[in-house]
């Protein structure tokens, strides 16, 4: 019986596949260039993140957010046939600001036409850019402009992910009298002697359909979820009572290891 099944299956596939292909891919090798839009939707677990609203972290603490900013960079798109397209580095450093929805809808331009089912990118600003001349730090990377709140001047480098808020479980911060938590994570590995390296690569597959980039047609939208609560768990539960703040210290590794998996693709919308 099994012996019979295989040839039958093969026969079915042979006849069915070309038909499928003809239906969905009238143009098997698209040419030209198009754009890809990525929309980052900030989330808190199952819902859209709202600043000033109470959520519960993995440690069971109530957390209320006021800041959620992050740098994403170094985008690479992989098509269904395995071809990689590296988006030119200088075109893709993006600061996604929790207060500014426009900053969270980014466009990768001039992408070769194709069907892209996989994307990888970096959380943070790579070491080469982190030590680049000041004249090359424009736009989202301008330390006295867009990035002024996302740059450590005393430990020269960008803050990759900045999460701030309040929690009744957090200890009282003496200077403000508030119960706050504050996680500013950076460190690219050092410029002349090593430091911690908290740069994280994110690899994501499109869950259903690939992003279809075509010349002269509307750009596909990749709808990404960025779950701030993921920063508090996996592999280590972070407690705002025990560790209410983290900056450029050893604990930042724990924070970065946690947030490495906060991105996911919810869906791709082709037009």
């Amino acid at each position: 019986m099994q012996k019979l099944l295989f040839p039958l299956l093969a026969l079915f596939l042979l006849t069915a596949l070309p038909a499928c292909k003809d239906d969905t891919k009238p143009d098997p090798t698209p040419t030209g260039f198009g754009d890809v839009v990525i929309e980052f939707e900030n989330r808190a677990g199952d819902e859209t993140l709202v600043f000033g609203k109470d959520y519960v972290n993995a440690a069971g603490e109530t957390v209320n957010f006021s800041t959620f900013n992050y740098f994403v960079s170094n985008f690479v798109l992989v098509s269904t046939d395995g071809t990689e397209y590296v988006v030119p580095k200088d075109d893709c450093y993006f600061l996604c600001n929790g207060d500014d929805a426009d900053s969270r809808e980014i466009t990768l331009t001039n992408i070769p036409a194709g069907d892209y089912s996989h994307i990888h990118f970096m959380i943070g600003v790579d070491s080469a850019k982190s030590v680049s001349p000041v004249s090359e730090r424009t736009g989202d990377l301008d330390p006295a402009g867009a990035a002024s709140g996302m740059y450590w001047s005393w430990n020269a480098g960008y803050i990759f992910v900045k999460v701030e808020g309040t929690s009744p479980q957090a200890p009282v911060e003496p200077s403000t009298g508030q119960r706050i938590f504050q996680y500013h994570t950076g460190l690219f590995g050092g410029f002349n002697s090593p430091t911690l390296n908290n740069l994280k690569e994110v690899h994501l597959d499109a869950p259903h359909e690939a992003a279809e980039v075509r010349e002269n047609s509307e750009a596909p939208h990749v709808h990404m979820y960025v779950d701030v609560l993921e920063m508090f768990t996996n592999p280590t539960n972070i407690s705002v009572a025990a560790n209410p703040t983290s900056h450029a210290g050893p604990y930042s590794k724990t924070v970065a290891d946690n947030y490495a998996d906060m991105f996911s693709i919810d869906h791709v919308h082709n037009h």
Partner: peptide, 18 residues
């Protein structure tokens, strides 16, 4: 004193923000 800044151009940002 801690060598936190790699380039002369980036030096002034440190005292300005401190």
């Amino acid at each position: 004193w801690d060598g936190g800044v790699p380039n002369l151009d980036l030096v002034p940002l440190n005292p300005i923000q401190n």
